[in-house]
């Protein structure tokens, strides 16, 4: 068992260098990144809504049930873009705008499985597929559980 971490404080020389180095660093363009992420993420959501309407209009899905085929279609598109090597360029341009929607989640799983094809299907693809997405699934399910628990307890107390 590793010892609990004692915070490694920097020596004065290290602190001085850190300040010095900061001046030379090319800073991330935060405002530009935020604006582009907003626009690209919004565009992906508009495309998703259009796909949803497509399913509602032409097929026998209600607003409630059209969620499933819409997400499936978006992940299919993300698979095509990842496979063609386009999604990483979109990602470099858009940042969070392409990483946060479900297409980004699809890209994480798909890129990992493409990458590890060379190690075989079971240990390579299967074992490494959720390398990036694993924490999303774990913490998503766990926080849903916690929130549901809190809601149930509150409803019980308020209901009584």
């Amino acid at each position: 068992m590793g010892k609990s971490k004692k915070k490694k404080s920097k020596t004065p020389e290290q602190q001085q260098y850190a300040q010095f180095e900061q001046k030379h660093e090319i800073k991330r363009p935060v405002v530009r990144n935020c604006v582009v992420a907003f626009l690209v993420g919004g565009t992906i959501c508009v495309i998703g809504q259009a796909i949803s309407y497509f399913y509602i209009y032409f097929f026998n899905f209600t607003e409630q049930t059209a969620g499933n085929p819409t997400v499936a279609t978006l992940i299919f598109l993300s698979m095509l873009l990842t496979g063609f090597g386009v999604y990483d360029r979109i990602g470099q341009f858009a940042g969070a705008g392409s990483a946060v929607p479900v297409t980004g989640f699809g890209n994480a799983v798909i890129s990992a499985s493409i990458e590890h094809r060379t190690e075989g299907f079971v240990l390579g693809v299967g074992g490494n597929m959720f390398k990036l997405a694993g924490s999303v699934i774990l913490f998503g399910v766990f926080s849903a559980f916690v929130v549901a628990l809190i809601k149930t307890l509150i409803m019980k107390w308020v209901g009584v």
């Binding site: 497509f54 209009y57 032409f58 097929f59 598109l77 063609f84 090597g85 386009v86």
Partner: peptide, 25 residues
């Protein structure tokens, strides 16, 4: 050039949508 896969993809998508709209009631 890297443009071609993207154009190919869009053409593929548009043709899929056109075909599927024929499945309408």
């Amino acid at each position: 050039k890297q443009i071609h896969p993207i154009i190919r993809l869009f053409l593929l998508l548009i043709s899929i949508f056109v075909i599927f709209s024929g499945c309408s009631t």
